[in-house]
Design a protein around this nucleic acid. Structure first.
Lengths: 173, 173
DNA sequence: TGTAAAAGTGAGTAATCGCTCACAAATGTA
DNA sequence: TACATTTGTGAGCGATTACTCACTTTTACA
C-alpha cells in the first residue's frame, strides 16, 4: 500500500462519513488528499471500488471485536462483553462506524446476516442462564447494542458510565 | 396543495428514502411523478426546499406520536407507551421514518434536542417509580427505542411480539 | 365573460459528475 | 546502466446535475 493510496483511503473515509458517499465527489477526495484525481481510479478502479476498499478495512475491525465475544465460554461474561461493545469503540474508529451505520439505510448495502453469529451465540448464552425466551432476548440485546452505538456515535452522552451500569443491572451483571 | 404538488412530495419521499437524498436527481423525481422538472422548483424553490417540505410533514406525524406519550400521567403507562412506540409505527409511514433515520447521519441534519421533552418526561416517570438512576434509565430507554425502530425499519423480525413482551418484563409491565 | 394570478411546461444553461487516456516520473531488477 | 513495471499526472470526455425562464394552460373571482 503506497503512502498516497493510504491518504486517499483516509480522506475518502472522512468525507464519506461526514457528508455521505453520494454527496462526496472524487475530485473533492483527490483535492483534499493532495493527489491527482486519476490516481483514485488507477488504484480503486471506480468510486464504488474506493468505497469497497474502505468497507473491507471496516469489516476486519468488526470481525476482531466480534470474535472476542463469540469465543467467550462463560454466558454471563459473553453477555457483558456484548453489551459493552458500543462503549469500548475507540474514538479514532468513529468515522468508520459512522460510515457503516449511514450506509445501512442505503438500498442493498445492509446485510443483517453479518450479526447472525453474534445472535446465535447470545441466544445460547441466554439458554444456559434459563431465560424464558432466549431468541427474543438475543434479538432485544442486539437492538439495544445498535441503539447505544447510534447514540454514542451521534452525540456522546455525558453519563456513559451510568447508562452502562444501569443496563448491566438489568442482566444482573 | 395541488394534486401534482402532492404527487411530487410522495414520489420524492419514496425515492429519497430508498436511494438517498443526494443520490436522487430532481429529474428522476419529476419523471417518476409524471410532472415537468420545472414544477418542482416552482413549488419548492430548490431541491433542499423539497426535502424540507417532506421533513415538515414527518415532524408533524412525530409530534402526534410524542404528545400522546407526554400527556400520560400514570408513570408505568407512560413507560409502556414509550417502549411500544417502534412497534406501533404504521407500515405506510415506514418510508418517512427510513428517510429521517437515514438523514440523522448526514452533517447538520440531526437534532438530538427533538427528543428532550420525551427524555424529561421519562426521567420523571422513573423517578416516581423510585428507580435508582432515573436519568440513566430514561437515556437507556431512548437508546433502545432507537435500536428497535432501526431493526423494525430495516428488517422486520418475525418475533416482534415476543421481543416486545420480553422488553416489557424488564420493566414489570 | 374578462382578466389577473397561479399552475404547469420543456428547452436551455453553466457547472460538475465519474471516468479515460496519453504521457511523465519513480521504482525495481538484471 | 538499461529497461520493464508501477505509480502518478492533468487535460479532456460525454453525461448528468440543479436550476432558469419564456411561454402556455388552468383556475379563481369580480
Amino acid at each position: 500500500m503506497t503512502e498516497k493510496q493510504e491518504k486517499i483511503l483516509s480522506t475518502a473515509l472522512k468525507l464519506f462519513a461526514e457528508e455521505g458517499f453520494a454527496a462526496t465527489s472524487t475530485s473533492k477526495v483527490a483535492k483534499m488528499a493532495g493527489v491527482s484525481e486519476g490516481l483514485i481510479f488507477r488504484h480503486f478502479k471506480n468510486k464504488d471500488g474506493l468505497l469497497q476498499a474502505i468497507l473491507q478495512q471496516a469489516e476486519e475491525s468488526a470481525k476482531i471485536l466480534m470474535s472476542d465475544i463469540i469465543l467467550t465460554a462463560e454466558p454471563k461474561e459473553l453477555i457483558r462483553k456484548a453489551l459493552e461493545l458500543p462503549f469500548i469503540i475507540a474514538p479514532q474508529e468513529y468515522e468508520m462506524w459512522r460510515l457503516t451505520y449511514a450506509l445501512k439505510w442505503q438500498t442493498n448495502q445492509y446485510e443483517s446476516s453479518k450479526l447472525d453469529p453474534l445472535k446465535l451465540v447470545l441466544k445460547s448464552a441466554f439458554e444456559k442462564l434459563n431465560y424464558a425466551d432466549p431468541a427474543a432476548e438475543a434479538e432485544l440485546l442486539l437492538m439495544f447494542i445498535d441503539g447505544a452505538a447510534t447514540a454514542l456515535l451521534l452525540h456522546e452522552p455525558n453519563n456513559k458510565t451510568e447508562i452502562l451500569n444501569t443496563l448491566k443491572s438489568k442482566y444482573q451483571l
